[in-house]
Write a protein that binds this DNA or RNA. Structure first.
Lengths: 338, 338
DNA sequence: CTGAAAGCGCTAACAG
DNA sequence: CTGTTAGCGCTTTCAG
């Protein structure tokens, strides 16, 4: 391993000058600077980030906290896209990503402790359960934090326009002629509340009275929970003409469950998802859904996090990212059975 | 931030003793050890890994190099599963993951340089293009390296039994009665060569003469390339009765392409994929495929990497992980048209 | 413009 | 069993 001392020796100057030259400080003779840089390249010098971090208190590392209840981790159809965007944007700015987890190495350790051990410069949080004590602890810490799809007084947040998402989707179905719509909603978290709000708003505007049976409890990203939801719905005397699922993944299994019971989609029941991930395009007919802008969500989160950590501050800026309705073949006008 | 000096002061001992106590060295009085540990917890001490790394030359960080030609990154249906397993296993052993990339922060930087900057302890490589100079450079470096699905004299490798995968899949189709089988193969890399070998072996054993038109060039994980492959096949005078695609993702778009041309799957043509990821279950009928054991691949890679880095060595152990045939509704006996 | 020196937080001989 | 000391590699005053 070649250090700045090796370069200093080779150039006949001090390590301080080498450091300054390599970091492009202005107060170093242009000639010596060039000489040092040349020599550094020649010797194959690679700066040691640990050493640098020790003296600068900057690791150029951004923590990413992502845990979902279904435990899909990196394989999550929706979040993997967001994470990819977070990562790409961070890398573009020179930061590496470190996943924050509990129980590292069998020792259990809080998220905050993990962050502090690694001295990450900031954290992006995208998880389902923001009520988790450890997540709260992290948000309340001195570390710059950006959350995705959560609303808090204390941290910066990037969010999808969830209210509008469900509002547009529901309005679209209503426009198709549906009135008996069921929303199989996901885990009871902030995002879900927002979506339910959008759902009700659309009904309200269309003059359709909201009744409790329009809401069925389900779960995000969980196959069985959605199959169960379908079975519950099928027990009803009067079936709805449209069912909205928590996400695209859920919708696909929901559709399959309906079909296994002989219910035709979209002929008998219209179905829609949420997220707009590629699996919605793989099935036939294409899934009607709301596309979330995962790339923007991720990039904005990274950028905001970097902005915060570079100014060593925290704030509670909110950035809302738009959504887009994607009509597909799974939602059609209801059969006129009158 | 509380340091070992703070603890030392509070306990009336030296920092050296604190360090030893906290690291469970045997040569420290059990009483003082307990006192120190208690005090450390009390003060909320969190060790600084950068500082430790600087003196121990161990960062407890494993690099993960993953680049595929389709640039899907973390959103790759197959690799995200492998990565998740690598990550989980690494974390269980106390290691964090760092993604290795080129062009960090706009500056272009080789994979090796990225590794050296971060002083990662070892690397797991799972990429398509092992011929890449930078990948080769990394494999040839002093850093312990484990590759997934590649064969090299110089590094340890974990691989799926690709030969057997295509052998079993092809044999299965032959057993169903197919003789006119086309393999739309992916990028021309090691894994592909292996699979083609398995394909030919199966034909050979069944006494079916191999002809060049049984092979069609396609690409892994790329929608358009596989649609193109389908279109090329459809131009033929005599259609095959079965088509094998590079992976499940490819197979799904292949099936859709066939259907868009009025070709019924599996009635007119049988189709199979490779990988065994969940999307194969989402479509109807379920995709016939070969399931790769992504969890084992990932875990073994992590474990091997850790074993190497802990012994500060490199070797060229090969571990082969089995595959499993998953019959699905996309492959049926061919229509008897005689 | 250059360099000496101290320090970031921790570990690792080596004495005692 | 405990403490002194010298680094690990880099940055950062502060003199010169």
């Amino acid at each position: 391993m070649v250090t700045i001392y090796d370069i200093a020796k080779a150039c006949g100057c001090s390590s301080a000058t080498v450091s300054k030259a390599l970091n492009n400080y202005p107060d170093v003779n242009i000639k010596t600077k060039e000489k040092i840089k040349k020599k550094a390249k020649e010797l194959g010098f690679v700066p040691n980030l640990q050493a640098r971090a020790l003296s600068t208190k900057r690791t150029w590392n951004i923590g990413v906290l992502f845990e979902d209840k279904s435990n899909s981790g990196l394989t999550h159809y929706y979040f993997s896209q967001v994470l990819q965007a977070v990562k790409e944007q961070a890398e573009e700015k020179g930061y590496d990503i470190t996943f924050i987890s509990k129980n590292l190495g069998g020792v259990d350790m809080s998220y905050l402790e993990h962050c502090n051990r690694r001295n990450i410069d900031g954290v992006v949080i995208a998880c389902i359960d923001f009520k988790d004590n450890q997540v709260q602890e992290l948000m309340a810490s001195k570390i710059p934090v950006v959350v995705i799809d959560y609303d808090s007084e204390f941290v910066s947040a990037i969010m999808s326009d969830n209210v509008r998402g469900l509002y547009e989707l529901t309005s679209y179905l209503i426009a198709l002629g549906h009135r008996d719509i069921v929303y199989a909603y996901g885990h009871e978290v902030y995002v879900t509340e927002e979506r339910i709000r959008g759902f009700k708003k659309a009904l309200d505007e269309a003059g359709i009275p909201f009744t409790e049976d329009m809401l069925v409890k389900s779960r995000y990203s969980e196959k069985q929970a959605n199959i169960d939801a379908v079975e519950e719905i099928l027990k009803r005397e009067k079936l709805p003409t449209a069912v909205l699922f928590p996400d695209d993944y859920a919708a696909i299994w929901g559709i399959n469950a309906f079909r296994n019971h002989g219910v035709k989609i979209p002929e008998d029941i219209s179905v829609a998802g949420f997220d707009g991930v590629e699996i919605g395009e793989m099935i036939f007919p294409r899934l009607t859904t709301i596309k979330q802008n995962t790339v923007r969500l991720g990039k904005e989160a990274s950028l905001k996090c970097i902005q915060l950590l570079e100014s060593k501050s925290k704030d509670n800026t909110k950035i809302t990212v738009g959504i887009e309705l994607i009509p597909g073949g799974t939602a059609m006008p209801p059969k006129t059975q009158m």
